[in-house]
Amino acid sequence: MIRLRPATEADLAEIVALSNWAYRGTGEAASWTVESYLEGERTTKDTLRADLAATPSAQILTWRDEAGELQGHCWLEPGADDVWYLGLLSVRPDRQDRKLGRTLLSAAEDYARERGARRMQMTVINVRDTLIAWYERRGYGLTGETRAFPYGDDRFGKPLRDDLCFVVLERAL
Score class of each variant (00 low, 15 high):
residue 85 Y to P: 00
residue 17 A to Y: 09
residue 80 A to S: 05
residue 11 D to G: 08
residue 115 R to L: 10
residue 113 R to K: 14
residue 122 M to P: 09
residue 74 C to I: 07
residue 107 A to E: 14
residue 94 D to T: 07
residue 121 Q to M: 15
residue 52 L to T: 05
residue 20 N to Q: 06
residue 10 A to P: 00
residue 69 E to L: 10
residue 9 E to T: 15
residue 134 W to K: 11
residue 126 N to V: 03
residue 41 E to V: 03
residue 34 V to H: 00
residue 78 P to W: 03
residue 129 D to F: 11
residue 142 L to W: 11
residue 130 T to L: 12
residue 74 C to K: 02
residue 27 G to Y: 06
residue 69 E to Y: 05
residue 34 V to Q: 03
residue 93 P to K: 05
residue 146 T to G: 02
residue 113 R to F: 11
residue 138 R to A: 12
residue 145 E to K: 14
residue 128 R to C: 11
residue 83 V to G: 02
residue 110 D to I: 12
residue 9 E to Y: 09
residue 116 G to L: 10
residue 42 R to V: 02
residue 82 D to E: 12
residue 11 D to L: 12
residue 19 S to R: 11
residue 25 G to F: 04
residue 53 A to D: 12
residue 20 N to G: 00
residue 57 S to M: 07
residue 42 R to N: 01
residue 106 S to N: 08
residue 88 L to P: 00
residue 18 L to V: 09
residue 50 A to F: 06
residue 55 T to F: 07
residue 135 Y to P: 01
residue 62 T to E: 01
residue 29 A to S: 09
residue 119 R to P: 01
residue 94 D to L: 02
residue 145 E to L: 13
residue 102 R to D: 10
residue 94 D to Y: 07
residue 88 L to G: 00
residue 132 I to C: 04
residue 141 G to M: 09
residue 12 L to V: 12
residue 134 W to G: 00
residue 141 G to S: 14
residue 29 A to L: 08
residue 125 I to E: 05
